[in-house]
Simulated scan of single mutants.
Amino acid sequence: MFDLVPFRRKNEDVVGSMLKSFHDLFEQNFLAPLNSNTHHFCTDIRETKQAYLIEAELPGFSKDDIEVNYSNGYLTIKATRNRQEEEKDKHDKVIRKERYHGEFVRRFYVEHIDEDHIKAKLQDGVLKLEIPKKVTSVPADKRVTIE
């Protein structure tokens, strides 16, 4: 009766599990996100009968900072930020200086699209893409005449 512990299997090694958790915690590279210059952004993707609709959140970017490319079946959205901010006090001394730079990239595989008619619009920090599907003709029923 004393070996009944909720949420733990009978043969589970408690001490080994704790040591593994501590090891995993200290083995993580906490600076990895800071060292990387590539980040991602949130996207919503919807599909209609005629098109794929993508909404990508890119607050603070102008349309000149954003590239949308389609190549070899992959749609790539890349936004580049290169900004410096500086605050000075009334004696023109630098109080704080921050630099933000990096690339935000998302890549999606899409096929059977009409790449010549992709539409993009940036409004209120949201990039909206309309990617029309290629019109495929459905073979009509055809009656074969017998001679």
Rank of each mutant, 00 (worst) to 15 (best):
M1R: 00
F2I: 10
F2S: 11
F2V: 09
D3C: 07
D3Y: 08
L4E: 09
L4N: 12
V5Q: 11
V5W: 04
F7W: 01
F7C: 06
F7Q: 09
R8G: 00
R8L: 12
R9T: 06
K10M: 04
V14L: 07
V14A: 02
V15E: 02
V15P: 01
G16R: 02
S17L: 09
S17R: 07
K20R: 13
K20T: 10
H23Y: 10
L25H: 11
F26W: 09
Q28G: 02
F30A: 03
L31S: 14
P33F: 02
N35Q: 10
N37T: 11
F41W: 08
T43M: 03
I45L: 11
T48S: 15
K49C: 01
Q50R: 10
A51T: 05
A51P: 09
Y52H: 06
L53C: 05
L53T: 02
E57T: 08
L58I: 03
L58K: 02
P59D: 04
F61V: 06
S62L: 10
D64W: 01
D64Y: 04
E67H: 10
E67W: 05
E67Q: 14
N69E: 14
N69H: 12
Y70G: 03
Y70D: 07
S71Y: 06
N72L: 11
L75K: 08
T76K: 13
T76P: 06
K78F: 04
A79T: 03
A79I: 07
R81A: 13
R81M: 15
R83A: 09
Q84W: 04
Q84R: 12
E85F: 10
E86R: 14
E87W: 08
K88A: 04
D89L: 05
D89P: 05
K90E: 13
H91C: 05
H91K: 15
D92Q: 14
V94T: 15
V94D: 01
I95S: 00
I95N: 03
K97Y: 04
K97M: 03
Y100R: 11
Y100V: 08
H101G: 05
G102P: 05
E103F: 08
R106N: 15
R107V: 15
F108D: 04
F108E: 12
Y109V: 06
H112N: 15
D114E: 12
D114K: 05
D116H: 08
H117R: 11
H117E: 09
K119C: 07
K121R: 13
K121D: 15
K121I: 04
L122G: 02
L122Y: 00
Q123W: 01
G125M: 05
L127M: 07
K128I: 07
E130H: 00
I131A: 01
I131T: 00
I131S: 00
K134F: 01
K134I: 05
K134R: 14
K134N: 13
T136M: 09
S137A: 12
R143C: 04
R143A: 13
V144G: 06
T145V: 12
E147S: 12
